[in-house]
Amino acid sequence: MNVFRLSGDVAHLIAIIILLLKIWTSRSCAGISGKSQILFAVTFVARYLDLFTNYVSIYNSVMKIVYLLASFGTVYLMYMKFKATYDHNHDTFRLEFLILPAIALSLIINHDFAVIEVFWTFSIYLESVAILPQLFMVSKTGEAESITSHYLFALGSYRALYIVNWIYRYYMEGFYDMIATLAGIVQTVLYCDFFYLYITKVLKGKKLQLPA
């Protein structure tokens, strides 16, 4: 554990909490892609199948459970409790375009062709593209509420911090995981355009609005 990894985890947690609070306090999930949230829930389930077989630390186990519960809570709020506010007309990204390639790739490129390992790999590939339905939704409507952009910024920061963590671990521990790193870089790159808009607009008090 290093400071970059910890900051990344905290940024991830903050992102998840921002989203839950936004939905809970506004009693609405307008502007949020339910499809991205389903993908994140699937990601956590596939990755944390090792919750009971691979003990790392109390910290790891607790965080895994928190991420799982929070992602299921978000999906529940969107598809059950505040279903009426869910903007499904704009949430039209086809999930099979992400899930099927992630399944195929995890069967071909993995560290070990074993069930738990393939699920872990699938979760890594799926997470790297899970935000696409949300970014697609923002581009479709041409704007995002500032709270939604704070959520995306926290989520993107988590990925960027993990890259710094991997660089640190490579030099300090000789540790690297090619699959996690390459997928992580892909995932972070997807946020770059958004980061640019966030810094040039949202931080200056403007609404995140895409150029027409």
Binding site: D9, N54, V56, N60, M63, H111, G174, D177, A180
Partner: peptide, 10 residues
């Protein structure tokens, strides 16, 4: 593959 997988990250 030098250092392989030991999934200790989240």
């Amino acid at each position: 593959i030098l250092k392989s997988f030991s999934h200790d990250e989240l």
